[in-house]
C-alpha cells in the first residue's frame, strides 16, 4: 500500500495525492495499488505544482509504514517542537 507525496512548489508544504489533486492532509491521501508507479512518473515528468514526488509506504489510511514512521510522521504533522507553528499543517488545503 502506497501513497504519492511531494512538496508544493510555491511554499514547500508537504502534500499527498488524494486521487484528484494534492492535499496537505495525510488522512485524505489516496492509498494506491498498481496505478502508483504511473502516477509517480506523471508527477516526475511535470514538477510544475509539486517538487520531489515519491511513493510512500503506508500501513493503513493516514499511517506511514513503521520503517519510515518517525520521518514521515513529522513530515505529515509538522515539527514536534515549536508546535505553535504547526497550525498551518492541520488545515487541509488543496494545491
Amino acid at each position: 500500500m502506497k501513497t504519492l507525496t511531494a512538496n508544493r512548489l510555491d511554499d514547500g508544504a508537504v502534500v499527498y495525492w488524494d486521487g484528484a489533486g494534492w492535499t496537505t492532509d495525510i488522512s485524505a491521501a489516496a492509498l494506491l495499488g498498481a496505478e502508483a508507479d504511473g502516477l509517480l512518473q506523471q508527477a516526475l515528468a511535470a514538477e510544475t505544482v509539486v517538487v520531489g514526488p515519491y511513493l510512500l509506504d503506508m500501513s493503513g489510511p493516514g499511517t506511514p509504514d513503521k520503517r519510515v514512521k518517525s520521518r514521515e510522521t513529522i513530515r505529515a504533522n509538522g515539527p514536534t517542537v515549536q508546535t505553535e507553528f504547526r497550525a498551518g499543517f492541520k488545515t487541509p488545503v488543496r494545491a
Partner: peptide
C-alpha cells in the same frame, strides 16, 4: 526543477522537510 535546483542552492535556498 532539475534546472532550478542548482540555481536556488547558489542563493542559499534549500527545500527542507516542510518548507523552503
Amino acid at each position: 526543477e532539475d534546472q532550478f535546483k542548482p540555481l536556488r542552492l547558489m542563493n542559499g535556498l534549500y527545500l527542507q522537510l516542510h518548507a523552503y
